[in-house]
Nucleic acid binder design. Structure first.
Lengths: 196, 196
DNA sequence: GTCAAGCTAGCACAGTTGGGCTAGATTGGC
DNA sequence: GCCAATCTAGCCCAACTGTGCTAGCTTGAC
């Protein structure tokens, strides 16, 4: 039969080219041709894997979610629960070029949602995954907290993380900003507050 | 001399058409022609006010910032400071079609920043304005808080607000979400926490 | 009335877009 | 060797893009 190329690997390569274009030139520049050129692939080849632009963009978005989940799953659970939780949350902040790119891609896809409705589901799953992760971290840090309070604390932790991520994305060179963000997250984890 | 049309009003009309296109069809659909058609204006007329696309988009972004600032400036300072602060913060949440549109436009412009570098300044001024607003609300609610603690509290309040706004934008129909967001913001305002 | 500034409308052009389509290259099974 | 499934490459087209440019319309000053 045929060449038996590894589809998955190939598709991920294209998706990473999508990320690169978004980071360098913005969502508006994500065209089939630009991505193919970025990945050193002929347009026809790209279109064999992704017949339409929407499928390409959607896959790129899915991959962000999947990669982040994998990365977080491998964070070692050390002795200190709060340290572990902070290590996990750090993966959600745009502190490295890789996580910055993820963040930009996520924002870009939200901005494109009206044009490509499938992206709404990716956006919702991403935000949902962050929430559930935070919910897990809250019960890890405070096993005795009642469910309702933990739900609220998880929402607060998730919103705080997202908000800090947004601000770090805009002002990454503020030398104190990353440290300040981690201070705030640590406080959020160690010092639970009344529900109302 | 000429017709003496009110330029400002006219430009704002075009900017609002930009918002409408972003909300309905995404940033990718913001072309000179699409915006002109949306505003029922000939392309040539639009280009008399905004010679290039970048100027149009930048103005639309500036207007979001200006309109929000004006709206917040008119929030009545009632008897209760916390109520006032909540009323102000509510203006930053996408709870109405208008504020939802503002939020979507802001996100869209962030996503387009690599393509139109001027947008970076708008983004930074927007985030900066939110921070300074929060800083003001913090000292209003806690006049005795030391400066350093107030700075940190303001960062936390700003990040929490932005994060909640992002989540409300994605899931606006969750009946409990808006109420929950306000509960969290009220708690943030009334119950200050240790700096670290 | 006349004039010129301010404004509107739109044509033209080169470049890019998404996607339909086909011709050829590559490869495992027989 | 040979076939057929799989993959690559690319041509093509109608539609759309931003922007340069000009021709005409409107209107206040004189």
């Amino acid at each position: 039969m045929p060449k038996l190329i590894d589809h998955q690997t190939h598709k991920e390569l294209l998706a990473e080219a999508v990320w690169a274009v978004i980071v360098d030139d913005g969502v508006g520049a994500v065209s089939i041709r630009a991505v193919a050129s970025r990945a050193n692939v002929a347009v026809g080849s790209l279109r064999y894997l992704f017949p339409t632009r929407a499928e390409l963009v959607a896959f790129a978005g899915e991959l962000v979610l999947r990669r982040a989940a994998e990365r977080i799953a491998t964070v070692p659970l050390g002795t200190d629960r709060v340290t572990y939780a902070l290590d996990v949350l750090r993966e959600l902040l745009p502190l490295t070029p890789g996580t910055r790119a993820e963040m930009m891609v996520n924002l870009a896809l939200i901005a494109e949602t009206p044009a490509i409705p499938v992206l709404a589901s990716i956006r919702d799953r991403t935000l949902g995954a962050i929430y559930h992760l935070c919910r897990r971290l809250v019960t890890l840090a405070h096993p005795d907290m009642p469910d309702q309070a933990a739900d609220l604390a998880a929402t607060r932790l998730a919103a705080l993380t997202d908000g800090l991520a947004l601000r770090l994305l805009a002002a990454p060179d503020s030398a104190t900003a990353p440290a300040q963000a981690l201070v705030l997250l640590r406080a959020e984890l160690t010092c639970p507050r009344p529900a109302t």
